[in-house]
Design a protein around this nucleic acid. Structure first.
Length: 176
DNA sequence: CCCTGATTCGC
DNA sequence: GCGAATCAGG
């Protein structure tokens, strides 16, 4: 389902854009998907884009890129620090996807939802998707993931339900 | 330990 | 051409 990942014209174009925009290799790799930061760096050099961040001294992040990251981070921080009204749990908005069965409201102690953009998502963070991937509001859970797994304890329970049990006790993972 | 890019070199 | 391994550094 995810085959043919290679340096197609559009992927190269995106790579160029992001690299020239000052994004780091690892972040670019994350956005491209299917490649490591090494692959990105290797490609950058082959494209002759290398030597960025040079010019005399060490220029870390491009101003505009820094600004963008700054904003993204600010958003993440705000959403994280915001009191996150516990009440919202008992009064949540309608699910994005149709919910066939009532599906138990998951009384789980969601306490703090990190919510991070792909920019801030790291290996040790829960990769459970939140929201519509096609919108800028899209986020990943971001909570501390279980070592060796891509999800936090909460989402791992949803993601890895025993086949047998899942058969009858099916619950809809409406990505919320 | 987290991260960064740079380089090498077998494939 | 590709990218893992490795290196050098913050």
């Amino acid at each position: 389902m995810e085959a043919g990942l290679s340096w197609t014209d559009d992927r190269v174009a995106l790579l160029r854009r992001l690299w020239e925009d000052g994004q780091s290799a690892s972040k670019i790799a994350a956005q491209l998907g299917g490649v490591t930061r090494n692959a990105v760096i290797g490609k950058v050099h082959r494209l002759g884009l290398g030597g960025r961040a040079r010019g005399g001294e060490e220029a870390q992040v491009a101003p505009q890129a820094a600004k963008a990251v700054e904003i993204e981070t600010a958003i993440a921080v705000v959403e994280t620090q915001a009191p996150e009204p516990v009440a919202i749990l008992s009064h949540r908005p309608a699910p994005v996807f149709p919910t066939p069965a009532p599906a138990a409201p998951e009384p789980v102690a969601l306490s703090v939802s990190q919510r991070v953009t792909i920019m801030d998502l790291r290996e040790s963070m829960c990769r459970w998707p939140l929201g519509d991937p096609t919108t800028p509001e899209f986020r990943f859970c971001g909570a501390r993931s279980i070592t060796g797994l891509p999800y936090c304890t909460h989402h791992a329970e949803i993601a890895y339900q025993p086949a047998a049990e899942r058969k009858r006790d099916r619950r809809v993972a409406s990505f919320r």
